[in-house]
């Protein structure tokens, strides 16, 4: 978490740290590194190696396929809608939860966590039950010729649902730990509600917000389960990148599948890189807002 690098007074290492504890330390660190390499690094490298198995030419050819381009475009479109939406709603919900007392607050907290705790497949099915032709709103939607599932709106909705908690979950603990006194101070100093929000509340959480947005974006582009249920799998139309990867893989087009996978992985890596660069660039400011007085 971005805000966890709070400066804590480090306990002084006792002088009697002997060779035995040093050995334990080496073993533990070694195990952790081994684990990270095996679980995280190797699969990631494999993706890129497989993508390049038949050379750069074939790799770029894969991106020329209209269905692949359509999948990339759809994924970017879905993320471009879902991420700003979830950032705005997540910010509003966190603000309400952290700064105000109201009836049903715990219920709201539970609801925010819900997409994390239920399987994405269920999240997708919920929309089928709601908007499907046999669903509650199905007949009305059909009568008005509105297509939600098996079309772009359904994919956006499913993605929004699955990625909803990311921003709120980053913000709520931070906002709660920061308390409400800065806002109260601003209001007593004569600031309006909006002024207080934009000048005090928002700047205090901007790094957590950014981090939440980055995580939200990574998941929005990578979501498979929920989108798979509502997609309808129409090629060049309702396949997002993850779905398209599966299709290419099932068509024995392994280079194509891994080419798209490497693009997706590349986007995720870029996201992480952006976060790291920002943290490095603004390290001082982050420390200033994270530290409690």
């Amino acid at each position: 978490m971005a805000m966890s690098d709070r400066v804590l007074p480090l306990a002084h290492t006792p002088e009697r740290a002997n060779s035995e504890t040093a050995l334990t330390k080496v073993i533990l660190i070694g195990l952790a590194v081994l684990f990270l390499v095996a679980i995280l690094f190797l699969p990631l490298v494999t993706v890129f190696i497989e993508a390049l198995r038949k050379g750069w030419g074939t790799l770029f050819e894969s991106f020329g396929d209209p269905d692949t381009l359509a999948a990339i475009r759809l994924t970017l479109l879905v993320a471009a809608i879902a991420v700003p939406f979830n950032a705005a709603i997540g910010l509003a919900a966190s603000w309400a939860i952290a700064k105000f007392e109201f009836r049903g607050k715990n219920l709201l907290l539970t609801l925010i966590d819900l997409p994390f705790s239920i399987s994405p497949v269920i999240s997708g099915l919920v929309y089928v039950l709601l908007f499907g032709a046999q669903g509650w709103l199905g007949p009305w939607l059909q009568a008005h010729d509105i297509q939600i599932i098996f079309a772009v709106p359904g994919i956006v909705l499913a993605t929004v649902l699955v990625t909803f908690p990311f921003v709120a979950r980053e913000l709520i603990p931070l906002m709660q730990s920061q308390g409400t006194s800065e806002e109260e101070a601003a209001l007593l100093l004569g600031a309006s509600g909006w002024h207080t929000f934009f000048k005090v509340t928002l700047p205090n959480v901007k790094w957590a917000l950014l981090y939440g947005v980055l995580l939200c974006n990574a998941r929005a582009m990578g979501e498979f389960g929920a989108v798979s249920v509502v997609s309808g799998h129409i090629r060049g139309l309702t396949n997002t990148m993850p779905l398209h990867i599966e299709i290419l893989y099932n068509e024995y087009n392994f280079v194509g599948a891994f080419a798209v996978a490497s693009l997706l992985a590349g986007l995720a890596l870029f996201t992480l890189l952006a976060k790291t660069v920002l943290e490095w660039r603004f390290a001082g400011e982050i420390a200033a807002t994270a530290r409690r007085h």
């Binding site: 199905g138 599932i149 098996f150 309808g232």
Partner: peptide, 8 residues
């Protein structure tokens, strides 16, 4: 199932 649920 998808057609039943409204895939056109």
């Amino acid at each position: 199932r998808a057609v039943i649920d409204g895939l056109q």
